[in-house]
């Protein structure tokens, strides 16, 4: 299984702080069936800056670490880029990394409680530059939960999205679990990834997520195959996004 969103590099963000913690995460990843991890340290959020050149160096180090410990897992470079106005320009300046360092996909993080008005413009400019934005964990954005139409219009406009395995598995509660499965059903989420930070609170849950989605539907909507295709450079199998009904007053009340 391929994990396209993971904080596996140490000492660069709120993920592991040292080699030991990274090793523990690698062990957990392998146990969870992961063969390839795209390392996506936070970039340009309020606390962390991890430019392309620095990420590449650390990815090499972690690959060596895995080899020294005879772990059969490969780390690829990437970033989780907090949305800002000049992503396309900075990509051209070689500061932004695409996923795996060889694709057209860039993982983009929205603020947790809103979808800024400039989002459409930025995602459009990225696409015009030949990039395909993947919105990280939309199921955890409160503005999108309130109005899924906000995500629908971004997907309609050509962006993709990635829900977090732990959300699908139910680790963040029933409400987020239901919502994230609905996003997959409506073709509003196209990947499931770990977004793992540490082994205890925010670890890997890929297998449990796969079980959860398959037990609900008998198939997984291609979300794991898409990650595979992304890494191999094959084109994805996508379907048109479907609009999700905004929750009415009563269902909102009953769901709380």
């Amino acid at each position: 299984m391929i994990d396209i969103h993971c904080h596996i590099l140490y000492g660069v963000d709120d993920g592991p702080q040292n080699e030991t913690e990274t090793l523990a995460l690698l062990h957990q990843a392998i146990e969870d069936g992961v063969t390839d991890i795209i390392a996506t340290p936070h970039h340009r959020n309020r606390h962390f800056i991890n430019e392309k050149k620095d990420v590449l160096i650390l990815v090499d180090k972690v690959n060596s670490l895995a080899q020294e410990n005879r772990l059969s897992i490969t780390i690829h470079p990437g970033q989780e880029v907090r949305i800002y106005g000049e992503i396309a320009e900075d990509y051209a300046r070689d500061e932004i990394l695409n996923l795996a360092g060889k694709t057209n996909y860039v993982l983009v993080e929205l603020p947790s409680s809103q979808v800024p008005a400039y989002t459409e413009r930025v995602l459009y400019e990225m696409q015009v530059a030949g990039l395909i934005p993947i919105i990280a964990h939309p199921e955890r954005n409160s503005a999108i939960m309130e109005d899924p139409g906000k995500l629908y219009s971004l997907i309609n406009q050509g962006a993709l999205s990635q829900v977090t395995a732990a959300s699908i598995a139910g680790d963040f509660g029933k409400k987020i679990q239901k919502f994230s499965i609905e996003l997959v059903e409506h073709q509003l989420a196209h990947f499931i990834a770990s977004d793992a930070h540490d082994t205890r609170h925010r670890g890997f849950a890929m297998k449990r997520a796969q079980k959860a989605i398959e037990s609900a539907h008998g198939h997984d909507f291609g979300v794991f195959e898409n990650a595979d295709r992304l890494l191999k450079g094959h084109s994805l199998q996508l379907n048109p996004p479907m609009e999700m009904k905004t929750k009415g007053f009563w269902s909102k009340l009953l769901n709380r």
Partner: peptide, 13 residues
């Protein structure tokens, strides 16, 4: 772990 192909997808196309 291989994901299952999305049969319904191609059929609808």
């Amino acid at each position: 772990m291989a994901a299952k192909p999305k049969k319904s997808n191609m059929d609808s196309k």
